[in-house]
């Protein structure tokens, strides 16, 4: 089925839902409409999209995006690719975990690495990273630590465990703390040409 046919079928079956074609995929304009679109694609006899293959997060700097690949095991068709775009400061997308059980871990992964909040998710916790990790490392504004330079909390930990600390390392950490800085990995510049 042609992508524009799918679009017109969705729009005629669900009044009030607007869908845009973005390079062979369908962009659901309002994130709130996502569950209706997916429910329609899953239940309607024309599509029978009974398998959600992947939930992907993406960071486009201006917005965050969640991409869904739907397949039909019953009709051996697919994929239908759905996209949802949300603002960075309020990344809320309705969860599909109630419709597809397989979405549960995939959404947890996207939450873990991109910080997209899936509403009504049964158990939205970090999946790969540990509890207590700050920030979402696959976002493009994530600041990564410099793992060569020890900081004040490292020095404190080493002191607690009775490990001798060389004086220059201690001094470096102290200076960083006084300036109120974190040791961050240097980002590549345009001059470096990477």
């Amino acid at each position: 089925m042609n992508i524009s046919e799918i679009k017109s079928k969705i729009e005629s079956a669900l009044p009030g839902v607007s869908v845009k074609i973005v390079s062979q995929s369908l962009l659901v304009e309002k994130p709130g409409n996502l569950t209706r679109v997916v429910r329609y694609l899953k239940d309607s006899p024309e599509f029978r999209m009974d398998y959600l293959a992947s939930v992907t997060g993406a960071d486009y700097l201006d917005y965050l995006e969640s991409v869904y690949h739907l397949y039909s095991m019953a009709k051996k068709t697919g994929p239908i690719v759905l996209r949802v775009r949300v603002r960075r400061d309020e990344p809320k997308i309705p969860s599909l975990a109630r419709i597809y059980r397989g979405a549960e871990f995939q959404e947890r992964e996207a939450y873990d690495l991109f910080g997209i909040l899936y509403e009504n998710h049964p158990d939205l916790r970090r999946l790969f990273l540990w509890e207590g990790f700050e920030g979402f490392p696959l976002r493009k504004d994530y600041l990564q630590e410099d793992s060569e330079i020890l900081e004040a909390e490292d020095i404190q930990w080493l002191e607690e465990h009775g490990i001798p600390i060389p004086e220059d390392i201690r001094k470096q950490a102290h200076e960083l703390k006084q300036q109120g800085l974190r040791a961050l990995a240097q980002k590549p510049t345009k001059e470096s040409g990477v």
């Binding site: 793992s147 330079i149 930990w157």
Partner: peptide, 12 residues
Amino acid sequence: YGPHGLIPKYNP
């Protein structure tokens, strides 16, 4: 496990 990685970053 720390907030940005492991604490300490290495054992001197």
